[in-house]
Protein backbone atom coordinates (compact mmCIF):
# COMPACT_ATOMS: atom_id res chain seq x y z
CA UNK A 1 0.00 0.00 0.00
CA UNK A 2 1.01 3.58 -0.52
CA UNK A 3 3.05 5.42 2.04
CA UNK A 4 1.11 8.55 2.82
CA UNK A 5 4.15 10.62 3.69
CA UNK A 6 5.63 10.12 0.22
CA UNK A 7 2.85 12.01 -1.47
CA UNK A 8 3.53 15.67 -2.03
CA UNK A 9 1.36 18.46 -0.73
CA UNK A 10 1.90 21.91 -2.21
CA UNK A 11 1.34 25.28 -0.60
CA UNK A 12 -1.25 26.29 -3.14
CA UNK A 13 -4.72 26.47 -1.64
CA UNK A 14 -7.38 24.34 -3.35
CA UNK A 15 -10.35 24.90 -1.08
CA UNK A 16 -10.82 27.55 1.57
CA UNK A 17 -13.86 27.46 3.83
CA UNK A 18 -14.25 30.25 6.39
CA UNK A 19 -16.94 30.76 8.99
CA UNK A 20 -19.42 28.66 7.07
CA UNK A 21 -22.88 27.91 8.50
CA UNK A 22 -25.80 26.06 7.04
CA UNK A 23 -29.37 25.52 8.17
CA UNK A 24 -32.15 23.22 6.99
CA UNK A 25 -35.06 25.43 8.00
CA UNK A 26 -34.52 25.89 11.74
CA UNK A 27 -32.05 23.03 12.00
CA UNK A 28 -28.42 24.15 12.22
CA UNK A 29 -26.63 21.39 10.28
CA UNK A 30 -23.18 22.93 9.78
CA UNK A 31 -21.80 25.21 12.45
CA UNK A 32 -18.90 27.55 11.99
CA UNK A 33 -16.84 25.40 9.64
CA UNK A 34 -13.29 26.60 8.98
CA UNK A 35 -11.14 24.46 6.77
CA UNK A 36 -8.31 24.84 4.31
CA UNK A 37 -7.34 22.19 1.79
CA UNK A 38 -4.01 22.45 0.05
CA UNK A 39 -3.45 21.08 -3.42
CA UNK A 40 -2.48 17.43 -3.23
CA UNK A 41 -4.01 16.82 0.17
CA UNK A 42 -5.96 13.65 0.89
CA UNK A 43 -8.49 14.37 3.59
CA UNK A 44 -10.74 11.81 5.20
CA UNK A 45 -13.83 13.05 7.00
CA UNK A 46 -15.48 10.69 9.44
CA UNK A 47 -18.12 10.92 12.09
CA UNK A 48 -21.44 9.42 13.19
CA UNK A 49 -24.40 9.57 10.84
CA UNK A 50 -26.13 12.94 10.87
CA UNK A 51 -22.93 14.72 11.81
CA UNK A 52 -23.04 16.79 8.61
CA UNK A 53 -20.01 15.30 6.88
CA UNK A 54 -21.82 14.55 3.59
CA UNK A 55 -23.51 17.94 3.71
CA UNK A 56 -20.13 19.58 4.12
CA UNK A 57 -18.60 18.11 1.00
CA UNK A 58 -21.83 18.65 -0.94
CA UNK A 59 -21.44 22.35 -0.15
CA UNK A 60 -18.07 22.33 -1.87
CA UNK A 61 -19.70 21.80 -5.30
CA UNK A 62 -22.90 23.54 -4.30
CA UNK A 63 -25.20 20.55 -4.35
CA UNK A 64 -26.16 22.17 -1.06
CA UNK A 65 -26.33 25.90 -0.48
CA UNK A 66 -24.67 27.47 2.56
CA UNK A 67 -26.28 30.47 4.23
CA UNK A 68 -23.32 32.12 5.93
CA UNK A 69 -19.58 32.33 5.45
CA UNK A 70 -17.38 31.80 2.49
CA UNK A 71 -16.38 28.84 0.32
CA UNK A 72 -13.67 29.45 -2.25
CA UNK A 73 -12.78 26.61 -4.60
CA UNK A 74 -9.77 27.05 -6.86
CA UNK A 75 -10.01 30.79 -6.48
CA UNK A 76 -13.71 30.94 -7.34
CA UNK A 77 -16.13 31.89 -4.59
CA UNK A 78 -19.42 30.00 -4.50
CA UNK A 79 -22.32 32.43 -4.57
CA UNK A 80 -25.67 32.45 -6.34
CA UNK A 81 -23.86 33.24 -9.58
CA UNK A 82 -24.71 30.25 -11.80
CA UNK A 83 -21.65 30.77 -13.98
CA UNK A 84 -19.32 30.40 -11.01
CA UNK A 85 -21.20 27.34 -9.83
CA UNK A 86 -20.89 25.67 -13.23
CA UNK A 87 -17.22 26.57 -13.36
CA UNK A 88 -16.55 25.02 -9.96
CA UNK A 89 -18.60 21.94 -10.79
CA UNK A 90 -16.66 21.29 -13.95
CA UNK A 91 -13.40 21.46 -11.94
CA UNK A 92 -14.59 19.31 -9.03
CA UNK A 93 -15.44 15.66 -9.54
CA UNK A 94 -17.85 13.88 -7.24
CA UNK A 95 -18.43 10.21 -6.52
CA UNK A 96 -21.67 9.24 -4.78
CA UNK A 97 -22.62 6.46 -2.41
CA UNK A 98 -25.14 5.09 -4.91
CA UNK A 99 -22.95 5.65 -7.99
CA UNK A 100 -25.69 7.63 -9.79
CA UNK A 101 -24.68 6.41 -13.22
CA UNK A 102 -27.14 7.25 -15.98
CA UNK A 103 -28.99 3.97 -16.57
CA UNK A 104 -30.25 4.88 -20.03
CA UNK A 105 -26.74 5.38 -21.42
CA UNK A 106 -23.95 2.91 -22.04
CA UNK A 107 -20.81 3.08 -19.91
CA UNK A 108 -18.97 4.87 -22.70
CA UNK A 109 -21.81 7.38 -23.13
CA UNK A 110 -21.86 7.95 -19.38
CA UNK A 111 -18.20 8.89 -19.57
CA UNK A 112 -18.30 11.06 -22.67
CA UNK A 113 -21.53 12.98 -22.00
CA UNK A 114 -20.17 15.76 -19.80
CA UNK A 115 -16.88 16.27 -21.70
CA UNK A 116 -18.82 16.60 -24.97
CA UNK A 117 -21.60 18.87 -23.70
CA UNK A 118 -19.81 20.88 -21.02
CA UNK A 119 -16.19 20.92 -22.15
CA UNK A 120 -17.11 20.85 -25.87
CA UNK A 121 -14.54 18.14 -26.53
CA UNK A 122 -14.95 16.45 -29.95
CA UNK A 123 -16.72 13.10 -29.66
CA UNK A 124 -13.79 11.03 -30.85
CA UNK A 125 -11.38 12.64 -28.43
CA UNK A 126 -13.87 12.25 -25.58
CA UNK A 127 -14.18 8.55 -26.36
CA UNK A 128 -10.40 8.12 -26.35
CA UNK A 129 -10.19 9.82 -22.97
CA UNK A 130 -13.03 7.66 -21.71
CA UNK A 131 -11.28 4.47 -22.80
CA UNK A 132 -8.08 5.66 -21.17
CA UNK A 133 -9.80 6.09 -17.83
CA UNK A 134 -11.78 2.87 -18.18
CA UNK A 135 -8.48 1.11 -18.64
CA UNK A 136 -7.22 2.85 -15.57
CA UNK A 137 -10.09 1.57 -13.44
CA UNK A 138 -9.54 -1.82 -15.13
CA UNK A 139 -12.87 -2.36 -16.91
CA UNK A 140 -12.34 -1.31 -20.56
CA UNK A 141 -14.22 -4.40 -21.73
CA UNK A 142 -17.49 -3.10 -20.22
CA UNK A 143 -17.55 0.07 -22.34
CA UNK A 144 -20.62 -0.83 -24.37
CA UNK A 145 -22.70 -2.34 -21.60
CA UNK A 146 -25.34 -0.54 -19.59
CA UNK A 147 -24.81 0.29 -15.90
CA UNK A 148 -27.49 -2.21 -14.89
CA UNK A 149 -25.35 -5.05 -16.24
CA UNK A 150 -22.38 -4.26 -14.00
CA UNK A 151 -21.68 -5.21 -10.40
CA UNK A 152 -21.73 -2.54 -7.72
CA UNK A 153 -17.97 -2.33 -7.52
CA UNK A 154 -17.68 -2.01 -11.28
CA UNK A 155 -20.36 0.68 -11.32
CA UNK A 156 -18.53 2.67 -8.69
CA UNK A 157 -15.29 2.43 -10.65
CA UNK A 158 -17.16 3.65 -13.73
CA UNK A 159 -18.48 6.54 -11.65
CA UNK A 160 -14.91 7.43 -10.65
CA UNK A 161 -13.81 7.23 -14.28
CA UNK A 162 -16.76 9.40 -15.29
CA UNK A 163 -15.60 12.13 -12.93
CA UNK A 164 -11.99 11.80 -14.08
CA UNK A 165 -13.00 12.29 -17.73
CA UNK A 166 -13.77 15.90 -16.86
CA UNK A 167 -10.11 16.25 -15.80
CA UNK A 168 -11.04 17.59 -12.36
CA UNK A 169 -8.49 19.19 -10.07
CA UNK A 170 -10.33 18.10 -6.93
CA UNK A 171 -12.27 14.91 -6.21
CA UNK A 172 -15.00 14.53 -3.62
CA UNK A 173 -16.02 11.08 -2.42
CA UNK A 174 -19.30 10.76 -0.56
CA UNK A 175 -19.19 7.36 1.20
CA UNK A 176 -18.11 5.62 -2.00
CA UNK A 177 -17.98 2.14 -0.49
CA UNK A 178 -20.96 2.19 1.87
CA UNK A 179 -23.36 0.61 -0.63
CA UNK A 180 -20.97 -2.13 -1.73
CA UNK A 181 -20.62 -5.79 -0.82
CA UNK A 182 -17.48 -6.43 1.23
CA UNK A 183 -15.86 -8.26 -1.68
CA UNK A 184 -16.12 -5.19 -3.88
CA UNK A 185 -14.93 -2.57 -1.47
CA UNK A 186 -11.30 -3.38 -2.11
CA UNK A 187 -11.42 -2.83 -5.87
CA UNK A 188 -12.90 0.62 -5.34
CA UNK A 189 -10.43 1.53 -2.59
CA UNK A 190 -7.54 0.39 -4.79
CA UNK A 191 -8.72 2.77 -7.48
CA UNK A 192 -8.90 5.59 -4.96
CA UNK A 193 -5.44 4.82 -3.61
CA UNK A 194 -4.07 4.89 -7.13
CA UNK A 195 -5.63 8.32 -7.61
CA UNK A 196 -4.11 9.56 -4.38
CA UNK A 197 -0.69 8.37 -5.44
CA UNK A 198 -0.99 10.44 -8.58
CA UNK A 199 -1.39 13.56 -6.49
CA UNK A 200 -5.12 14.20 -6.80
CA UNK A 201 -6.60 16.52 -4.21
CA UNK A 202 -9.23 14.40 -2.48
CA UNK A 203 -11.81 14.78 0.22
CA UNK A 204 -13.36 11.47 1.22
CA UNK A 205 -16.26 10.93 3.54
CA UNK A 206 -15.77 7.33 4.52
CA UNK A 207 -15.81 4.81 7.34
CA UNK A 208 -12.87 2.90 5.86
CA UNK A 209 -10.34 3.58 8.58
CA UNK A 210 -7.76 1.40 6.90
CA UNK A 211 -7.93 3.66 3.88
CA UNK A 212 -7.63 6.70 6.11
CA UNK A 213 -4.52 5.34 7.78
CA UNK A 214 -2.90 4.37 4.52
CA UNK A 215 -3.70 7.32 2.30
CA UNK A 216 -4.94 10.35 4.19
CA UNK A 217 -2.60 13.07 5.29
CA UNK A 218 -5.31 14.51 7.51
CA UNK A 219 -8.35 13.05 9.23
CA UNK A 220 -11.27 15.24 10.26
CA UNK A 221 -13.79 14.07 12.81
CA UNK A 222 -17.19 15.74 12.79
CA UNK A 223 -20.08 15.59 15.22
CA UNK A 224 -23.28 17.65 15.43
CA UNK A 225 -22.33 19.74 12.44
CA UNK A 226 -18.98 20.79 13.79
CA UNK A 227 -15.38 19.84 13.22
CA UNK A 228 -14.47 18.25 16.54
CA UNK A 229 -10.95 17.17 15.84
CA UNK A 230 -8.49 17.06 13.01
CA UNK A 231 -5.04 15.65 12.92
CA UNK A 232 -2.66 13.58 10.87
CA UNK A 233 -3.83 9.94 10.84
CA UNK A 234 -1.21 8.48 13.16
CA UNK A 235 -1.94 10.96 15.91
CA UNK A 236 -5.68 10.87 15.24
CA UNK A 237 -5.98 7.12 15.67
CA UNK A 238 -3.35 6.52 18.31
CA UNK A 239 -3.77 9.58 20.41
CA UNK A 240 -7.20 11.19 19.99
CA UNK A 241 -7.65 14.32 22.06
CA UNK A 242 -11.40 14.78 22.48
CA UNK A 243 -13.62 12.40 24.42
CA UNK A 244 -16.14 12.35 21.59
CA UNK A 245 -13.47 11.17 19.17
CA UNK A 246 -12.30 8.51 21.60
CA UNK A 247 -15.85 7.21 21.94
CA UNK A 248 -16.38 7.17 18.18
CA UNK A 249 -13.10 5.40 17.52
CA UNK A 250 -13.73 2.83 20.21
CA UNK A 251 -17.09 2.10 18.63
CA UNK A 252 -15.93 1.65 15.07
CA UNK A 253 -12.58 0.04 15.77
CA UNK A 254 -13.62 -1.94 18.82
CA UNK A 255 -15.01 -4.99 17.06
Amino acid sequence: MAEASKMQVSDEIAIQITGMNKWYGQFHVLRDINMTVQRGERIVICGPSGSGKSTLIRCVNRLEEHQQGQIVVDGTELTNDLKNIDKVRSEVGMVFQHFNLFPHLTILENLTLAPIWVRKVPKKEAEETAMYFLQKVKIPEQANKYPGQLSGGQQQRVAIARSLCMRPRIMLFDEPTSALDPEMIKEVLDTMIQLAEEGMTMICVTHEMGFAQAVANRVIFMDQGQIVEQNEPKEFFNNPKSDRTKLFLSQILGH
Partner: peptide, 13 residues
Protein backbone atom coordinates in the same frame (compact mmCIF):
# COMPACT_ATOMS: atom_id res chain seq x y z
CA UNK B 1 -33.97 9.13 -7.94
CA UNK B 2 -32.58 12.47 -6.77
CA UNK B 3 -29.12 11.11 -7.47
CA UNK B 4 -29.69 11.50 -11.20
CA UNK B 5 -30.23 15.24 -10.82
CA UNK B 6 -27.24 15.49 -8.48
CA UNK B 7 -24.94 13.55 -10.78
CA UNK B 8 -25.92 15.79 -13.70
CA UNK B 9 -25.33 18.88 -11.55
CA UNK B 10 -22.03 17.59 -10.23
CA UNK B 11 -20.78 17.08 -13.79
CA UNK B 12 -21.47 20.75 -14.54
CA UNK B 13 -24.44 20.25 -16.90
Amino acid sequence: PRGQYEAADALGL
